[in-house]
Design a protein around this nucleic acid. Sequence first.
DNA 1: AGGATCGTGGGTAACGTTGCCCAAATGTTT
DNA 2: AAACATTTGGGCAACGTTACCCACGATCCT
Lengths: 345, 345
Amino acid sequence: MTRSAQRRRVTIVDVARHAQVSTTAVSKVLRNAYGTSPAMRERVHQAIAELGYRPSAAARALRGQTYTLGVMVPDIANPFFPEVLAGVTEQLRDTDYQVLLAPGCAGEQAEAKTIESMIDRSMDGIILIAPVSPRAHLEHVAGIVPTVVVGRHARGTIFDTVADDDTAGAALVVDHLVGLGHRRIAHIAHPETEPSCIEEMPNMIRAEGYRQAMRRHGLAGEIDIVSTRYTREGGYRGARQLLARPVRPTAVFAGADIAAMGALDAIAEAGLSVPGDISVAGYDNTPFAAFSQVSLTSVDQAGAQIGADAARLLLARIGDRARRSSQVKLSPTLVTRATTAAPSS
Amino acid sequence: MTRSAQRRRVTIVDVARHAQVSTTAVSKVLRNAYGTSPAMRERVHQAIAELGYRPSAAARALRGQTYTLGVMVPDIANPFFPEVLAGVTEQLRDTDYQVLLAPGCAGEQAEAKTIESMIDRSMDGIILIAPVSPRAHLEHVAGIVPTVVVGRHARGTIFDTVADDDTAGAALVVDHLVGLGHRRIAHIAHPETEPSCIEEMPNMIRAEGYRQAMRRHGLAGEIDIVSTRYTREGGYRGARQLLARPVRPTAVFAGADIAAMGALDAIAEAGLSVPGDISVAGYDNTPFAAFSQVSLTSVDQAGAQIGADAARLLLARIGDRARRSSQVKLSPTLVTRATTAAPSS
DNA sequence: AGGATCGTGGGTAACGTTGCCCAAATGTTT
DNA sequence: AAACATTTGGGCAACGTTACCCACGATCCT
C-alpha cells in the first residue's frame, strides 16, 4: 500500500485491465450510464475498490463536468456568511458535488478576478454571495457558467437570485424603534460606488427601506444616514459620527450586525450605555447577536435557508440551462433583544 | 464581444493562429520558458490581449500544475480561522496561485473525504488547519501533494508544520489567574478520540499545559477539567457543568475563545457576573474577544502570522519537494482584558 | 424462419496544455 | 573556411476521461 512513496496514480485504464473490461465500460459504470450489465458493474466496482481508484477531476474537467461548485464570499470575517455556507453545504451533502470557497474579494476588481479563476477551473456552477459587479457582468458570467446570485435584487435573464426582502427588514426595525417611542433614529449604511448596482444592492435597499419607513411614520425630518461600511471598523466610524451630532440620535439602526458591533464599541468608548442612552439594532441575526454579552436586536434573514435555496436553484440550473430564471425572496423577521428599549428622555 | 451568448472558449490554438506562431510558442511565452525572442513574446502577448485568452486550468491540471492551493478549515464558524486565512491570502497576493477553501470537515471521516477531493482536483499544494487525521494519514497525503499542517505539534518527515506554543499559552493564562489570586481554576477542553493524535493536538497540549502550570503553582489538587468541545455549544455545556460543582471554581480557562463565549452565556444565564463572581479567559484572541461588550482576556497566537508562515512554507515545498521538513513554532502572548480580575472571596 | 429490435460491450477521437525532441538560422571559434 | 555552439521556433505525443459511434449476439414480433 504505502510503499516507496510516489507512485503513478491509478487510472481508469488500470481499473479496466484489472477488471478485464474496456475503459469505456469503466467510464460507463462510473457515471451509471446506459449499457452496463449488473455482472459487469459488479466486477468494475470490485476492481475500483481493490485498486483504490479515484477519478481525476482534471481529466474530467477537460471533457465535461468537474463535480465542483464554487461559492464566492465577499468577507469571510463577517459571521453571517458562514451561515449561508452551511445552508449550501447541507443542501449538497448527498450529491457528488464538492463545494469550494473562493475568499477575499474586496472590490469589483478582485471580485472579477476571483470569478474568472472559478471559470478557468471549469466549475460546474457558482454561487455569488452579495457580488458588487455590475449586472451586465453577472449576465456575462452566467452565460459561461450556471450561476446563482445571492443578495441582489435583480431579475437576471439567465441567472437565478435568492434575496431577503430588505425593504421589509428595514421597516421591521424602524417600526420596532418607533413603537418603543424613538424618533431620532439614525442609520449606518454601506455606500455603493457602481451606479448600475444602486437599486439592486441590499445595503442600498435597506437604506431606502429605512427612509420609507421613517417617512411613513412622519419622521422624514429625522432621517439621518451615515455611510461608512458593513464592517466592524465601518460601524465604529459611523457611530462616532453620529455621537458627535449636536443632537444625538436615540437609536441607531446598523445595516449589518458586524457594523452594529463596531457601533457598540464606539458607544462604549464614549461612556454611554445601551440601551439606556441609546438603542442599537443590527441586521443578519448572526450568532454573535444572540450572544449573552451582546444580545443585539437584529433582523433575521435565515442565512441557512438562503444558502439552501441557492444550492437548490443552482442544481436545477445545471440540470437545465435553458430554464426560466427564478427569483426567491425570503421574508425577514425581527428578533428583539436587549439592545433596544424605550428612550430615556 | 458579448455576442450570441455561448461561444467556444478561446484556446491556445486560437492565439497561435492569430499571432501566426505555433502553439508551442504560445505555451512558452505563457510560462516564460526558454526559447522565445522579444519580438515573438510581444506578438503573442498582443494576440492574447486581443482575443481575451485565459489558460484552461483543467488542461493544465492534466499536464502538471493547476496554480491552485487548497486550504482546509475545520470550522468556518470559528472566527479564528478567517484570520489565519487572511494571512495565507495576503502572503500569496502577488503570486499566480489562487486559494480555494474546502469547508465543513467535522470529524476524521469528513476530513479524509475533503482532503481526497483536493487531491482529486490536483491542487498544487494544501494547507491543513488543525486536522484530526492520524499522523500516518497526514504523511500519506503529504507523499502525494505538498502539504503544510497548521496546529499540530508533530514533526512530519515530509510535511512542514506551523504551530503555536500551546504549553506556553496555557501557562500564560494560569500564571495570570494565579497572579490575581485565583486557586480554583478550571479548564474547558476539547477531547481527542484518535489515540495516535493525543500528543500532537493543540487542545490536548493546552490541557496538559494547564495541568503543568497548576502543578508548578502547587495547585495540583485544584486541577479540574471538563471535556466538551471547542464550540459555543461546548463552552456552554462545559461551564454549566462547572457551575454545578459543590465548590464553584473562581476562574474558567476555556481552550478557545469560541468556547469562552459559550461559557459566558452559561454564566450569564446562571445570573452570575464576570469577573465579579467568576473570571473567564479564552484562547486565540479572536476579533470578538476585543469587542467592547465582551472584552475577553485571551491568548493571542497571531493567526495572520501563522497563515503567512504556512503559505511561505508551502511555496518553498512546492519549489523543492525533497526539502527538509521544517517546524515553525510561534510564541503566544497574553492579552489581559475585563473578564479576569481578582477573586471576590 | 426471417427481419427488426434490444441489450451489451468496445474502439476511437477528441478536450487544451506542455515536455521532449529536433531543425533551421545565426553567431563564434579554430 | 570548416566545425562548432547558441538561439529561435515548431512537431508531436502524451495526460485521463468521456461522447459518439458501431458490432455482436439474443430476443421478439409477424
